[in-house]
Simulated scan of single mutants.
Amino acid sequence: MIRVLVADDEELVRSGLRLILEAAGDIAVIAEARDGAEAVSAAARLRPEVVLMDVRMPGTDGLTAAARLLAAPSPPKVVMLTTFDLDEYVHEALRLGAVGFLLKDTPPRELAAAVRTVAAGQAMLAPSVTRRLLASYAGRAPSRAESARRRLAALTDREEDVIRALARGLSNAEIGRELRLTEATVKAHVSRVLAKLGLANRVQAAILVHDAELG
């Protein structure tokens, strides 16, 4: 079972998330928190694998709480939840080390899949968030693009195909269908690309591709 903590100041939202996640069968919501301070305290005590954290909460907000959680030894995977698709939240959450950023209207099946994805060590962004995040790099300096292209030059042609598809927000299964590869092969390529480029997750890989003006 994937152990999850849900933090949101609205009881109805917390209850809805619990129902959705526990209906998946392989996810257990081990605690709920009404604000960031409660989330930090509960996470330290219960050691969840994944924390779903609302961005806007009274008192200690989600970003402040995420910073405290992610600064601790062996931190949980933190996924930020919000009603508002705003760039400043995305950038700050990723800078802090969050591995996911989802909108609260994410369909139930996708929400459960996102928890599984981050629990397995991969990043997960809502498609609309990915598009806005990458679009914000449109004004990058030429030197940044040149540096990114030099880093990507270390990849094989197939690895470059994979990272370009990844940068478009495709899942491993979707990349496999597009490139006529098995999902296991795609997963191996992604892991190799991240290791070769010294990247922590898929989001950083996507940003690098767009820095290089290849996506």
Rank of each mutant, 00 (worst) to 15 (best):
V203C: 06
A167M: 08
A114P: 01
A138T: 07
V90S: 00
G97C: 06
R109F: 06
S128R: 15
V129E: 00
R192C: 10
K187T: 14
A119W: 03
S74M: 10
R18E: 02
R180C: 01
L166F: 04
A112C: 01
A148N: 10
P127K: 00
K104Y: 05
R151S: 09
L166P: 00
L17N: 02
E92S: 02
A71S: 14
R158P: 13
I20Y: 03
A195T: 13
S15K: 13
L19Y: 04
K77R: 15
L70G: 07
Y137T: 13
L155V: 14
L155G: 10
V162P: 07
P75C: 13
L133R: 00
R192D: 11
E88T: 00
E49H: 09
L21M: 08
R144G: 15
A212G: 04
L166E: 04
A31V: 08
A154F: 13
A71Y: 15
V118T: 09
A205S: 11
S128H: 08
L197F: 12
M124W: 07
R144L: 15
F101T: 03
A138S: 15
I207W: 02
G198D: 14
I27H: 01
R95H: 05
A65W: 04
A37F: 15
G59I: 04
Y137V: 12
R68A: 15
H210Y: 07
E183C: 00
V78L: 05
P107L: 04
L12V: 09
R68E: 15
H189Q: 12
G198M: 11
A7V: 07
E178W: 00
L199Q: 13
I27M: 05
P48Q: 12
D26E: 12
D87H: 11
A24M: 08
R177W: 15
A23D: 12
D61N: 12
E38I: 06
L86G: 09
L86H: 14
L70E: 09
A138F: 14
L46F: 13
A33C: 11
A65K: 01
I20C: 09
R158H: 12
L111A: 08
P58A: 10
A212I: 03
V162H: 07
D105Y: 06
V50C: 04
E22D: 02
M80N: 00
R144S: 14
R56E: 11
Q204V: 11
A184I: 07
L199Y: 13
A43I: 14
V29K: 08
G36E: 10
Q204I: 07
R131E: 15
V99K: 08
A98Q: 03
A135N: 03
